[in-house]
Design a protein around this nucleic acid. Structure first.
Lengths: 204, 204
DNA sequence: ATCTGACCTTTTTTATAATTTGGTCAAAAA
DNA sequence: TTTTTGACCAAATTATAAAAAAGGTCAGAT
């Protein structure tokens, strides 16, 4: 890793910290510049604009997610275990990066968030493909019936996301969701997963 | 029905029309007064404030929903048919009364919407109880396994609502959702319902 | 190749005035 | 007595303009 990439890393790390805590909108390029003890124009030597930096940050987070996803999946056998692992990891990342509003439960439509859309879509497809893989394995196992893995993985992830939004919107009268909200989400998702897997065993 | 109630009806009907089209916030008491050809203070003889009128409107809508729900349920046998009927009716009402934002997919927290919360909660409980009844019947039928009807009905409705929010938030870049969005919601809900019912047959 | 100070333009914030809206009340009309 | 009105008020909303802050550029220093 060259000196240039090393500095880029430094910038991204500072950005992740500030974005996670204050949100993207409330973080200025000046603050990030101060963090790494350079003037603000120096930042623009490494990232042409804020949008590019945001994308780099989101990309890094999603990569980390998939890295941990593969790691925690190690040694698991049943679909139940695997799905539970996904739910837990999702909760972890949702709590950690809630302020980035990547699932944009709000509709403060900044062009910044629009720029994240392609990368989030890519991540969504990747995650769906991963779940599809798990389902295909289970089908071949014979542990579930011959459903359409692609279709079912999409449905599964959409419901998970939908349940998150449901809890955030209906129970989130406070400014920020607390541990209770994240726990409520996980509980609902677990309940759903149980029935869902049962359904996959006999469906069609 | 006395003369007083008749006029109240008139006011509520005008309010429903304007609320459905322009939303609650963008409808003024003056406009409603004009609709029924009286001055604005006359309105306050029938409803002490706007909040009370809004509640009357929402109550009327929910009553209509449950009335139609019972009606369209007539003669249906299987859980599949009954759930499909619910989905269709939900779509109908969601399309018709979207502008009231009763599920508040937005977080424009007006005290007006807060005042609707109790009545919406009541309606939610009522709907959940209704679905619970369907599930109990199915359990006694033997058409599904001995699950917890109360818990499963809550889960089912939460997922339905979550899927609505999911589509609205992720696909609604336009100001208003169109027919495509409502269709997308219905499709997802149908797919989910299929697996869900399968799951109920073998769960636990 | 990396960084800075000076500079520019566009957004966002702030402060303030104008308007609208929800709501009240004494008195008139029915 | 029941219903409606015109006149009125206070709070919320909107409109406008000024001030500040933000993103971004660039020639030149290191």
């Amino acid at each position: 890793m060259g000196e240039l990439d090393k500095k880029r890393e430094l910038i991204v790390e500072s950005a992740i910290k500030r974005f996670s805590h204050f949100g993207i909108q409330k973080t200025t390029m000046n603050e990030i510049a101060d963090d790494i003890s350079v003037t603000q124009p120096a930042l623009y030597y490494y990232f042409p604009d804020k949008m590019t930096l945001v994308i780099a940050v989101v990309e890094r987070i999603m990569n980390q997610y998939f890295e941990e996803l593969h790691k925690c999946m190690d040694g698991l056998q049943s679909l139940d275990e695997e799905f539970y692992c996904i739910l837990t990891l999702r909760k972890k990342f949702m709590e950690r990066y809630f302020m980035l509003k990547l699932t944009e439960a709000t509709q403060e439509v900044g062009q910044i968030h629009d720029s994240c859309q392609p990368i989030m879509k890519k991540a969504h497809i990747k995650e769906a493909a991963f779940v599809t893989g798990l389902l295909e394995k289970a089908v071949n196992n014979g542990s579930i019936s011959k459903i359409d893995p692609h279709k079912m993985s999409g449905l599964y992830i959409d419901v998970l996301t939908g349940l998150s939004m449901f809890v955030f919107i209906t129970k989130n009268k406070k400014l920020f969701p607390g541990n209770e909200e994240f726990e409520a989400i996980l509980t609902k998702q677990e309940e759903f997963t149980k029935v869902f897997i049962s359904g996959l065993k006999t469906s069609k």
